[in-house]
Design a protein around this nucleic acid. Sequence first.
DNA 1: TTTAGATCCGAACGGCGTTCGTGTCAAGTA
DNA 2: TACTTGACACGAACGCCGTTCGGATCTAAA
Lengths: 252, 252
Amino acid sequence: MATARPDRPAAGPPARELPTPPGRRPRRAAPPRRPLTREAIVETAIRVLDAEGLEAVTMRRVAQELGTGPASLYAHVSGKEELRELMLDRVAAEIGLPEPDPARWQEQLKELAREVRRVYTSHRDIAMVSMGLIPTGPHLLDVAEAQLALMRAGGVPKRIAGMAVDTLGMFLDADAIEGTVYYAKAPAGEDPHAFFEEYFGQFKEYFSALPKDRYPVLTEMVEELTDADDDGRFEFGLDLIVRGIASYVEDE
Amino acid sequence: MATARPDRPAAGPPARELPTPPGRRPRRAAPPRRPLTREAIVETAIRVLDAEGLEAVTMRRVAQELGTGPASLYAHVSGKEELRELMLDRVAAEIGLPEPDPARWQEQLKELAREVRRVYTSHRDIAMVSMGLIPTGPHLLDVAEAQLALMRAGGVPKRIAGMAVDTLGMFLDADAIEGTVYYAKAPAGEDPHAFFEEYFGQFKEYFSALPKDRYPVLTEMVEELTDADDDGRFEFGLDLIVRGIASYVEDE
DNA sequence: TTTAGATCCGAACGGCGTTCGTGTCAAGTA
DNA sequence: TACTTGACACGAACGCCGTTCGGATCTAAA
């Protein structure tokens, strides 16, 4: 008893659509629009991520979005962990990579870091997946390759470059998470900007009310500490790292 | 109908222990040994953390460990998130703090960073809680105060110190997570060291097998990239950051 | 002795990741 | 054309999870 699947080419001769015999009902209300594939699953998962954050990306939710049950996903993906890594690598494909110019390697490394930051933060808290993960996906490896290529072109020794790519990766992950964790806390319906303002205002108040005898330095720096210039903080850390790497270039 | 509680002083005159009337049984087999407190809950949670990692710290598990049900915890703790933050702050209490010596501020800042790392990594993946969290607990603030005091004693401008404490915190969190995520993956019964060896060997193999035309730089650096000298990598990143901070000291 | 409030906690709600076993169906084989 | 095979789909269930509810119990003030 074949259920009609209009989107797929029928195997035999195009069977005429018969009316449902009395007492029988089609086994499923509507067959899935498209056959399940790894790509469709990852794509759907990223749609949920962008709309509602990483926490909302559950096997059940993704399956529901595809009009099926959670068990169906396991034929294409080994589990939630693999799905997350596939999502990350697909996001990493959006990162624009530079053509190395040895004369500008430091600025190029910074530009690449900014590009990673832009892509990560445009996909909610996807960076959480990256934290503490050895990159194995092709696009993540492309990014690592690009970073290494820039440093090597600039004359950074192998050993230094090997450690630096790690430090830089940690910095990028941590920064992206830092920037998105609070955003993720904002209630669904609310204006995130107003929520933010309110949220940080409370912290400023809290820090100001701290006992001056126990925290003499901190209480004198409330202004500097609660100044939420995210871009400035990122550039500060990035500059620290890149300058530090550059100091290891041999020929001076 | 009061059930006898031998561990606690009885309220009225010491009622004689009556035999259980037929058809009735004591409502609970054994009353909890100690009354529930915030401290006891946090303490128990950390015991579970140390033994089985952060993932095993669930409300149900902690309650079970205390001989009660999960609902009982909510009288002392607002929820899982708050419990996690209380755990982190209690762990932070173990961090030894320096007496600032302006002449040695850079080395002292490094020593403090090493101390944070030591304490964090001695409590499994507790650092995950810290990532993307504005510190508010007293002991976490002590650490921030100490870092700021060292930098200010060394002549680091307020604005720089404010950003640097953030960068350093991100680095410490990210490093601790990096170091414990794989450890957390090791199966419960297995020898972690052997598991590690095996695990990293697989990665080295994987990187070596990568196509040389797409990843020309990376494939030439497999040795440098898979060299798992965690301490060396930490010192490298730490040195980058501290040197960078020092470069902002005004009086030169 | 009464009462009010804190504390405790069994039961339940809705959601989670994953597995099992069965059902379906296209492609290959006879 | 009929049968077999193997990949895929997926309903149902298992054992977890965080949190809430409402009544029972206990403590200390009145």
